[in-house]
Amino acid sequence: MGYKLTPEAFSRIVAGLSERYRVFAPKRYELGGHFSDTDIIRYGEISAGSEIIFGEKSAQSFKEALLPITQVLFYFTEKEMKESDFEQKDVLVFLRSCDLNAVKRLDTIYLRNGEEDYYYKRVRDRIRFALIGCPEPFESCFCVDMGTNRANNYDFGVVEQDGTYFVDCKAKDLADLFSAGTQEVQIPPLFVSKTKTRVNIPEELDASVATASMWEEYDGRCINCGRCNFSCPTCTCYTMQDIFYQENGRVGERRRVWASCMVDGFSDVAGGGSYRPKNGQRMRFKTLHKVLDYRARFGENMCVGCGRCDDVCPEYISFSRIINRLSEAMEEVRNADK
């Protein structure tokens, strides 16, 4: 059961929420697409429900709300290291089920793999989630096979059907916002239960798949641009950078910026050493991180099947297809061992 709202009513409620929260949601940026004259859907702060794009998938994920692309950790003066400030306002993020499952992966790395990350935690403690229901899967989605098509840890969920908004509110403190002047009704499902793109992660998958021939194909096809990583809601890597200001060399900042294991330099060490020089090796590393290594360490797959990496690759490399090639690759490796 839930509430039925007109677009205007929904938009007004979100506008009201934006006074108490910084509200992040997928919105349209005109002519910001990969191909010069297309629009792009990505996350940004909104001040009314009408800004939220329900019918298209966002090219970038919600991740920026928790982990900005560039984040200042400290400001330096001559003798002092001063912690960066942050906006003392609660945050509300609109996101789909795959992405809400991705939050769990971010939490695992940033709160449980070693010490808690202070900068992540200070935003995480202030965040609430609004689920964007999915009446239909998009072409490249494979959440069902990854077990991420459902989520229940949201404060309220909203699904659009024929220009009407249906809300399932779990948070008691927000219920009044939606119930005012409306009757409880049966609402359409918030989750898909079938996707067009399917994946199969072979049960016998292990690290020996690294020697399969399939990876070599990506030496040439992949141009190590890193877009797959930057669009991924579960990629967590960053690089630390210190800079000093042009105008005043005595002051500066320490910051972290998103990093990609596909891009040159990720593994460089002193003395000219570098691990995984070939793009195919990087593809293997990324793939196994998403569907094997993380699971070995934390008990579930890292990839949530959002399909964004497939959507953004300029070389039309499909990650779901890579997953589906793993069975054959394992067979090849086993036969070679015989």
């Binding site: 790395i109 793999n113 990350d117 690290a207 890597c237 960053y238 990720f266 290594d293």
Partner: peptide, 10 residues
């Protein structure tokens, strides 16, 4: 355990 640069397998 956050930046990912040092990861090998799991």
């Amino acid at each position: 355990g956050k930046c990912g640069h040092c990861k090998i397998n799991d």
